[in-house]
């Protein structure tokens, strides 16, 4: 019973974080929610008895993807789009 509760809550949380990551108005918040989604995926892999994938997902989904996307957000968000940009972006 407890396991079903855990699995059910995990699945609901996965879907909610996925929706929030896609529909969030703020791009930075979307990426942060996506990192949370990656961490929940890690828990899901543990629940599916796949510790190898859980390790890889923890390192990649939560670590590398997060850094990569946050770096890109700070870069893309530094100026308003629509114009050809010449001056440097503040990194």
């Amino acid at each position: 019973m407890t396991e079903w509760l855990l699995d059910g809550l995990l699945v609901i949380a996965l879907v909610i974080t996925a929706v929030a990551a896609l529909l969030s108005r703020d791009l930075f918040r979307a990426v942060v929610v996506f990192i949370a989604f990656g961490l929940l995926m890690t828990v899901a892999w543990v629940r599916l008895q796949a510790p190898d994938i859980a390790l890889a997902e923890a390192a990649i989904g939560a670590g590398l993807t997060g850094v990569l996307l946050l770096d890109a957000v700070s870069h893309l968000g530094s100026k308003r789009p629509g114009k050809r940009t010449q001056e440097g972006g503040e990194q």
């Binding site: 510790p51 190898d52 390790l55 890889a56 390192a59 990649i60 670590g63 850094v67």
Partner: peptide
């Protein structure tokens, strides 16, 4: 046991980052 080239490579890449 759980582990291997992919996980180690990811951690190594994270170290580099």
């Amino acid at each position: 046991r759980p582990g291997g080239a992919f996980q180690a490579g990811a951690v190594l890449a994270a170290t580099g980052v």
